[in-house]
Amino acid sequence: MPEQSNDYRVVVFGAGGVGKSSLVQRFVKGTFREGYVPTIEDTYTQVISCNKNVCTLQITDTTGSHQFPAMMRLNITKGHAFILVYSVTSRQSLKELSAIWDAILETKNEAMGDIPVMLAGNKCDETESREVNCSEGEEQAKRWRCNFMETSAKTNFNVKELFQELLNMEKNRNMTLSLDGKEKKSQKGPHKFKEKCCLM
């Protein structure tokens, strides 16, 4: 039977169509699809290194288009870390994250500082239709005391970094995406990416 205790579970939340599945698929498979197929709930695994051992990163890609409150609560309960995705082309999608944030806060019922959460402003390649600028995302992240990045699943910008940064936030384990452990945390700090995104 697959090892359960060794799993690190990441849950990706966000409104419908913001690009959750695209980010996850870009990260896991390295692919991108233009077409939109709404998700109900899918999981993916990726082998990573954790405290110099091999462990599985289990990613749950949730629905933004259906209402399944029971499933959302279960995912929050089981999740170790969360990625909250909005699209920079939709202010509404950033607003909708508040409800999810509240639900995480309520369910986890512990010092939120200990739970890794990344706020991701996806579709940052869409310069024409941008509604939310980078600083707004940063401010929201400050209020929620989580980290922030703008990403593009389409151009593969900051996708791997998003996941690595999330893992870096976990204080109880030392996790890296590459199995050989060559990638040093210091090389890829969050600051570098924030700068990069604000320059755009």
């Binding site: 697959p2 998700t39 999981t43 695994t45």
Partner: peptide, 16 residues
Amino acid sequence: VIFRVHCADHTYCTLR
């Protein structure tokens, strides 16, 4: 109906 289909490693996709 909505249901899950699993792989050997217990990952799944949800179908309708």
